[in-house]
Design a protein around this nucleic acid. Structure first.
Lengths: 210, 210
DNA sequence: TGTAATGTGTAACTTTTGTTACGCTATTAC
DNA sequence: GTAATAGCGTAACAAAAGTTACACATTACA
């Protein structure tokens, strides 16, 4: 446990803090597809990612989804941070993209550590910065790219966080993540295949250009 | 000076902190249209808005812009916060939407106060939360709304921060802010006028439904 | 005062994206 | 084994957004 923690966060936190995290934190193993946070949830503890990846989604009034970004090991969810410290509802949905290992930190400790450990304060602020950058990148993608480019970026990102150039996903799932229709995705995927960038199979897609 | 400060921030900060802000902060009056922050800038001091409004923009590789949101009095720029504390380059452009009055806080003080004043820490975290919410709203707008709805929302937001239902702007400027073409904006504006939601004049638009 | 620059309206057309419909195949449930 | 379901391909069409072109009015200013 402590070893794993040190491996991921040792370069960030001092020995005392690592010990405290190990003592008060709860380790959790989450299976792929598990919903970690729902929109409107009040968050009572904050997850530190030890291994795996999490998909962060936004939803509109009609219930249509849109992927914002993936979180990887060594990261935390700044949205959660934000909600914990502000005692506000979650504005996003979080779903385990792969099997994932977390350490859950109670919100009370988070606040205590902000005053106690300089490295924790730095980590929290750095996390906010990172998440802000990710949100900006999401905006760039949605606003400035055409659907075919968004799709290819999505495929590459997904291959990246899964550490696998073959991604297991249906056209319908992609369409949901990108907030478009299945037909559009099938059409664009076919074009990408013709261009030699991917290989299409049932339930999975192989990315050739990474 | 101090009076103004107290009016805007008195309910947030304790007396000592207000005094310190007043002592180390530099008051600045910025004219409408002035560029406060450029993409790539290193930020050495952080602005607290006393009055007025600031427009926050994102840019793609081709130099095309996109409005993210407006900042109003009582706010600060969390992007700036983020950059100051992380010593990173600005990822956004900030332009005075109206004549604006600011207090500039040196980055060294910002960090010092994080440890010293609980209320400052809370303010910084709250600012991050607010900005995150604004970014999410920007994403919703871009991803889920059609251009006609985005346009009308833009007009209403602009009227709001200017405290005026007549907004002074050209079709070309709107097109830049929304990252589309002038012709598209003219077309949609005409439809909005026919629907009785706005009145079109040269260089200004009156919003009828607020 | 004439001329250039700016701002707006509109038509015609293209591209991109979204929708509907239907056929085919692989997988799953029973 | 057979029916039902899920996944994918494709055509035909519709809607939204982007592009090009041009006319005309107002404003700036030489």
């Amino acid at each position: 446990m402590l070893e794993e923690l040190k491996q991921q966060y040792g370069y960030l936190f001092e020995e005392d803090l690592l010990q405290e995290i190990n003592n008060v934190g709860t380790y959790k193993d989450i299976p792929e597809g598990f919903k970690l946070i729902e929109i409107g949830d009040y968050i009572k503890s904050m997850p530190l990612l030890v291994s795996g990846a999490i998909k962060i989604l936004r939803e509109d009034e009609e219930g249509d989804e849109l992927i914002l970004y993936f979180i990887e090991q060594g990261d935390t969810c700044a949205m959660t941070l934000s909600c914990c410290l502000g005692n506000a509802k979650s504005e996003i949905r979080a779903i385990a993209e792969t099997d994932t290992r977390l350490i859950m930190i109670p919100v009370t400790k988070m606040e205590e550590w902000l005053g106690k450990y300089k490295s924790w304060q730095k980590f929290v602020l750095q996390s906010y910065h990172n998440r802000m950058s990710e949100l900006l990148e999401a905006i760039d993608t949605i606003a400035f790219l055409k659907m075919d480019q968004r799709l290819f970026k999505y495929l590459k990102d997904k291959a990246m966080v899964n550490h696998n150039d073959v991604i297991h996903v249906t056209h319908q799932q992609i369409a949901s993540d990108l907030h478009t229709s299945r037909v559009v995705i099938s059409r664009l995927l076919k074009t990408l295949e013709i261009d030699g960038k991917i290989e299409l199979h049932r339930n999975n897609i192989k990315i050739l250009e990474l």
